[in-house]
Design a protein around this nucleic acid. Structure first.
Lengths: 345, 345
DNA sequence: GTGATAAGCGAAAACGTTTTCGAAGCGAAA
DNA sequence: TTTCGCTTCGAAAACGTTTTCGCTTATCAC
């Protein structure tokens, strides 16, 4: 049933030309007569010739594919990044091969190997938070395949560009905003210690406290292992019922902040009057929930576009046999102030 | 800089074997001695040999890639579907090449062509709502590449499997539920007329009314062109301030239903006491919002897994030179009842 | 000693391009 | 006439696998 596709040789035979000439005619090479080009193009169109990019890829030693590995696809932020990536990558006539690590090191490793075997021309990756070794990325660089990391990055892979969001500054402004609104005992709902972004947001939190001469209270910092909505709810609820409860919550994720928000509502604590809440990510949800959630917005699509552009640049460099200098870029965040933290009008 | 990867020939040379033998040893063919296999595997591991799947693909005339085209990736439902697809596809040792049509026919067409040129072994597609011609899918079938459509499908492509959600039944049960809860003037916030799913959900709405001897009131049906949250809010707000306002809203999308929910809150209308609200999709948000939103849940990941499994089956069939019989599957939805419609305890 | 069988391996073609090198033809300059 | 240069094209080698076919050699039955 699988009828063979038309090949260059088929066209060549029928036109009494060589495959080489047909190839060059289709690619509009200068040393083919216009007449021949016309004949070739006409027949190619009539027979609906489609070039086999696998064969071309083998010969040219490039696949025109870039690999993308992300921890989780069902996520507003990551899918926005992917969208950004696809925008620029497709304009440059590359395709995207997508993998999802599920935050698991092992999966990430086999995905990377599979992409390498597919001879992708470059890799865009946001690393899983369980990843502790990075050899699988070195394999790319060793074979001249550039790697650009975005969002969840590491400095353990020398020579590889990184593009992140300034998590520390984002957290800082959010907490500073809470302080400006008069909140003083600000709790932080954070994530597992090995998550890079979690640590940076914690740092922003601590820096903001220090900048305002507030002492860091260990008991106001709780680590949520899965960073889920219900975790946020439980821990916030617990904190609120302690003897010396916090008067604000900073969730390093909107999930956690939203959990804190409902915990407040369930306990009859008024937001923002008694307790303020701020999150991180600026989901669509933040605008819908009541009271609406103050949150740090991260530029997902922008990050995706930027990462893709850098990768394409690096691919181009390598084609010209020059090793690209790695770029380290930090994107600014925006604090979107909404009701959950607006005590002062 | 781009150091060449190790090839079969490299291994063969060093082991004084032929590439053929090395290939067979690595693939564990029976007519290679165990001793040779051991030597080959040892060297392959030592030299970190990685098979070039482009070359293999060319020779075997298969890419081990399946193409996926969706209208929009930044969407909870679609990204869940993709996740489901990737689960089964990667277990079967295929990769996923992802495209996004942006709901545009032209983009869909070039994406399809690009995937065909990449010689994907199969195509999974959810068609854009502006697509009115389907020749670009016929190109796949004509070359023996199976196509499976999911969610947004068409019957204009003969021989291609379809897997959808029973939108009509889903809407029916949601509206029936509202009626059971005592609501009588049920408004529907629906989408553009050319959206297939919108029409089917409208039908479910009408059927439910008819089944309960309620007359369909044209004025209670509003078409939202972009199906956004704010559209839902505006139209619901407008309806509520009409002389004979509805006592319930059925949004064919959670976005619209959530908009209706806030419209009610803004106007001081009590939900669910005075007005009931139900949506469609069962986002995570529905559980967080206050009151929580009753919604029809669509099995995104299940649909993805199913579509992928069917496609893989069809690929297998074609390998055995038998044309697979197209399958038409409709998945059931689940009504998740929450507070926004629970008037009767 | 002959023939059959099987185990283990290699030669070479094939997959469909692209690219290097050069050749043929032709007109023009010398 | 030779030489040079230009245009236009072809032969053939790559790219790295897989697969077909067949060749050894050894073993075994007769």
């Amino acid at each position: 049933m699988s009828k063979r596709q038309i090949t260059l040789a088929d066209l060549a035979r029928h036109l009494r030309l060589s495959p080489a000439t047909v190839s060059r005619a289709l690619k509009n090479y200068p040393d083919i007569s216009q007449d021949t080009k016309n004949r070739v193009n006409a027949l190619a169109k009539e027979w609906n010739y489609r070039p086999n990019s696998i064969a071309a890829g083998l010969r040219k030693r490039e696949s025109k594919i870039i690999g993308v590995i992300i921890p989780e696809i069902v996520d507003h932020y990551f899918s926005a990044i992917i969208k950004g990536i696809m925008e620029v990558v497709y304009d440059a006539d590359y395709r995207v091969m997508l993998c999802q690590s599920d935050e698991a090191y092992d999966k990430e490793k086999v995905d990377a190997a599979a992409l390498l075997d597919s001879r992708v021309d470059g890799l865009l990756v946001s690393i899983a938070h369980t990843t502790y070794k990075f050899d699988h990325f070195l394999d790319f660089l060793n074979t001249g395949t550039p790697v650009v990391m975005f969002d969840k990055v590491t400095d353990q892979v020398p020579g590889c560009s990184r593009i992140t969001v300034d998590d520390r500054a984002g957290a800082f402004t959010a907490v500073q905003h809470l302080i400006d609104q008069g909140y003083r005992r600000i709790a932080i709902l954070t994530g597992p210690q090995l998550a890079y972004t979690a640590l940076k947001r914690e740092q922003g939190y601590k820096d903001a406290l220090a900048a305002n001469n507030l002492t860091f209270d260990e008991s106001l910092m709780v680590r949520c292992m899965d960073v889920t909505y219900s975790e946020g709810q439980q821990y916030a609820s617990h904190l609120l019922q302690c003897p010396n409860p916090p008067d604000a919550f900073f969730g390093i994720t909107d999930n956690l902040a939203l959990g804190a928000l409902t915990a407040c509502k369930q306990l009859g604590v008024k937001v923002p009057e008694q307790v303020g809440v701020a999150g991180f990510s600026n989901w669509l949800v933040g605008d819908i929930v009541e009271p609406s959630l103050t949150s740090v917005s991260q530029p997902g699509a922008t990050m995706g576009r930027l990462a893709a552009n850098i990768l394409l640049e690096e691919i181009k460099s390598i084609h010209q046999d020059i090793t690209p200098a790695p770029q380290y870029i930090e994107l600014k965040t925006d604090l979107v102030v909404r009701k959950s933290s607006s005590r002062i009008s």
